[in-house]
Design a protein around this nucleic acid. Structure first.
Lengths: 341, 341
DNA sequence: CACACATTTGGTAGCGCTATCAGGTAGCGC
DNA sequence: GCGCTACCTGATAGCGCTACCAAATGTGTG
């Protein structure tokens, strides 16, 4: 009478149900699904049939608990507006999914405090790996990461002090190269407009621009930065303010394409010819730079390639094939010379 | 001697460790963390202290297994390039995080097959809810969803046949209203360029345009669609091809801002004046439409608002306060009349 | 002081799965 | 046939947590 009082099962089909229905042991079913090669073909087929018939979906929580492993990879994204999102994540996720991992994405809005808080929530899932953007983290974040068993991957910029794995590009070099290109083209009064001024990426870009200017005996005096997200407004404002500071300005480097958009519109409004009156370039170009009028000289970063390299590096680490492997990969960049310079 | 041979614990601090160290029972610790009001203040404080001291992080897998509930919400995103991503997800995630839920994001690339596959993977996590974009799903997807205990939320478009909850806008109406606006402004030869032609959103937009044209005795004959993602190229191509078909074309509606960008550039290239020679509008405007030259008349959708309404609706459902509640919310849209028409 | 009642605490028995090991079966050489 | 390895299969004992009861403690009433 007092039989099933204590049951609180979810009603879902369980591994045991499959086992009973197939007339085999539970372990055999478990193996048939995870390591099929360890099960005879006969049983494997029979089990597969029952699985489909019953619509069995494994309970990952139980699996994770029993094995102490998990197939989730935590990714903390600083911004959804970035190109990273549209170009990087799809490729990255695809490769990881194929290897059986699940991305769990959090959003930090470029705040290291939020990053830290998110991280401690995400670590409760016991993820196999944690993927972060940028190289700036709170001390507590670094401590949490080092205490966790998870593999750590830092993306977006090459960082000497990376915790574990690191895939990215050298923003100092890219900015320097862009500046050198402009100088080679004969431009001399080169200004810089950048967003997210508190991020180390922008600081590196600024230093790259300054270095290239100085090595050519030019003064890197005029620049405008904002700590906001890159936007069109900043580009408009940049052209306006910098032209006031330096009326004979002849070139402008924008850290982001959105800024370059704004700058382009502002130049149109002022009937400034590009590149005759002023050259316009950006450091993270994609389709807009390639298609607008005039087409903009820009640094292009292959985020899909970055995703591929990053995912594969991470997988090697997760499968323990990373003994004698580079832990840091520089993706490089391409300077696309176009009509705007 | 044969004591600890069988241990395979992860080495992490567990709830039992905290309980022992605090000198209380495990259940009391569990309650102190999840339902503090059920524990006396004295014990609560003592436990909190020990938790911090030991750096205890709860194991969610175990919790989910024991309670049969999970705090993960699966979100299947069709595209990362969309505005949905940058505007919707941050707000949506923030509200859900605050309520203690975790977003697990998958990427379907607008393929209902991939959506189905992703879904079955994500359901293994036993999510509290599943959030999908669009209204088109495979039969198997619908079956999986209905079998699962999870709450279902369909986003982006209002859909009569929604499975459960539904928050979105009426794309038929928005397109119709835009067309009416153009007609009211005196434009008559109005063409349409749209991307993702196999999605029902675009089909509704096309029908809205057609309906508005017909009710004004105008022929909705000229349009160009592509099943690709919206891009600048399509806008350029649209202007070129439609102008060939109909040289006296006087207005163009673009389904996406990217297309409008391309159209704008192509018009500049052809030295067509906007709106004197041709009006240009789009159905999902944001900053570009607002800032480019001339500024584009566009339909604006408040994705942050959509996120707020959707998240709150979902939370009500998850806490069971949804008995006499609307299951479907129309977010509405705003027609921003600007210089381009 | 006995009693009902509310509040706080802890023991126990799972949740559904996998690691581990023991048992069974088959194949092979002597 | 026997011993030996190689392989396949299943019983058992947890993984760390929470639902469910039961016990303990406090509180107010007659």
């Amino acid at each position: 009478m007092e039989t099933l009082r204590k049951r609180r099962g979810t009603g879902r089909v369980t591994l045991a149900d499959v086992a009973k229905s197939a007339g085999v042991g539970a372990m055999t079913v478990s193996r048939a699904l995870r390591t099929p090669e360890q099960v005879s073909e006969k049983l494997r087929d029979k089990i597969q049939l029952v699985v489909e018939e019953l619509g069995y979906i494994p309970n990952q929580a139980a699996g994770a608990l029993a094995s102490g492993k998990s197939d989730s990879i935590a990714l903390i994204l600083p911004s959804f507006a970035d190109k990273v999102c549209s170009n990087f994540i799809p490729s990255f996720q695809e490769i990881l999914n194929q290897a059986g991992y699940q991305l769990v994405i959090g959003y930090s809005n470029y705040s290291i405090t939020q990053e830290e808080q998110l991280l401690s929530t995400l670590l409760a899932n016991n993820p196999a790996a944690v993927v972060l953007f940028g190289s700036e983290h709170s001390a507590q974040t670094v401590k949490l990461l080092k205490n966790s068993q998870a593999a750590i991957l830092e993306l977006a910029e090459i960082n000497e002090l990376c915790i574990d794995l690191n895939v990215g590009i050298d923003h100092y070099q890219s900015s320097k190269e862009m500046t050198r290109h402009l100088i080679k083209q004969g431009f001399q009064k080169i200004a810089f407009v950048g967003a997210r001024s508190e991020q180390s990426i922008l600081r590196k870009q600024l230093r790259g621009w300054q270095a290239a200017m100085l090595e050519n005996y030019l003064a890197p005096d005029h620049f405008l930065t904002s700590n906001d997200e890159p936007n069109i407004e900043l580009g408009c404002e940049g052209v306006a303010k910098l032209l006031l500071q330096q009326p004979d300005l002849d070139a402008l480097i924008c850290s982001h394409e959105e800024i370059a958009m704004g700058a382009l519109f502002e130049c149109q409004r002022r009937v400034l010819q590009i590149p005759k009156d002023i050259a316009l370039t950006c450091l993270d170009g994609s389709t807009f730079s390639e298609k607008c009028i005039p087409r903009l000289t820009s640094i292009e970063i292959n985020y899909a390639k970055m995703a591929g390299k990053a995912a594969r590096l991470l997988l090697q680490r997760l499968t323990g094939q990373d003994q004698n492997l580079l832990k840091q990969i520089d993706i490089g960049f391409k300077l696309c010379e176009r009509a705007s310079s």
